[in-house]
Write a protein that binds this DNA or RNA. Structure first.
Length: 221
DNA sequence: GAGTGATCATCC
DNA sequence: GGATGATCACTC
């Protein structure tokens, strides 16, 4: 059981260098041949290895520590291959919410990043777990996120959700987050009336996570 | 359905 | 080749 950040980081560091296959073997898990039908599998394996337990609750993975766990697929140059999901977007109108009160901020204030090798040419079972990084956003990063969040949140508050595309937001943006394109959830339209729409999620662009992941080399060299 | 874990697949 | 929109698996 991990009791503090130091223990958590130490445990995550012990995993670095292992392959997905080696870690899976410790838990008697069979590694899927492909992630096509097992998209969150690696993330859940790491969660298990580190003792994360928040499950599907909308809170940090390590509630006592206030730390969120994020695995991030990287190529051989250590660059993220995908954007990173943060949380579901609250689409019903909320007034006077500050960025610091949002789930976005709560999730990102303290994150344990675990980069995972994700070259298509390398079989999933042979991919290596990289050195972890315990991170908090800098003032600059926080301001960048707050700006994007404010812009997008303002549009939602004005009922302009349908005008939001993934192109908006320099570092934090909004994309669909659902089982499929037919999923529906309640939002508020420009008339202030309830309306059904596709559920959305906040995602971090890889240009943002790349900045973060880069700092691992600085701290380890 | 809503939330978690994400990657896939197509378009530009 | 990267970004965008769509999708998969699982839990409760």
């Amino acid at each position: 059981m991990v009791e503090n950040e130091q223990d958590l980081l130490a445990l995550a560091t012990q995993l670095s260098g292992l392959t997905i296959g080696q870690l899976a073997a410790r838990f008697g898990e069979i590694v899927p041949a492909t992630q096509h039908k097992a998209k969150g599998w690696v993330g859940q394996l790491i969660e298990r290895a580190l003792g994360a337990k928040a499950g599907s609750l909308p809170i940090a993975d390590f509630p006592e520590l206030g730390v969120e766990l994020k695995t991030i697929p990287v190529n051989t140059k250590g660059k993220p291959r995908e954007s990173t999901y943060v949380c579901t977007v609250q689409l019903r109108q909320q007034y006077g919410i500050t960025f610091e009160q949002t789930v976005v901020y709560q999730k990102l204030r303290r994150v344990l990043w675990v980069p995972i090798e994700a070259e298509p040419a390398i079989a999933l079972i042979d991919r290596q777990i990289h050195a972890p990084l315990l991170w908090s956003p800098s003032e600059t990063q926080l301001n960048q996120l707050r700006e994007d969040w404010q812009e997008l949140t303002d549009m939602i508050a004005l009922g302009e959700l349908e005008m939001i595309s993934a192109q908006l937001g320099e570092y934090l943006h909004i994309r669909p987050k659902a089982a499929d394109a037919r999923s529906l959830t309640t939002a508020t339209n420009f008339l202030g009336e309830p309306t059904m729409t596709l559920p959305r999620g906040f995602y971090l662009r890889s240009s943002f996570t790349e900045q973060i992941i880069k700092s691992i080399d600085l701290t380890c060299s």
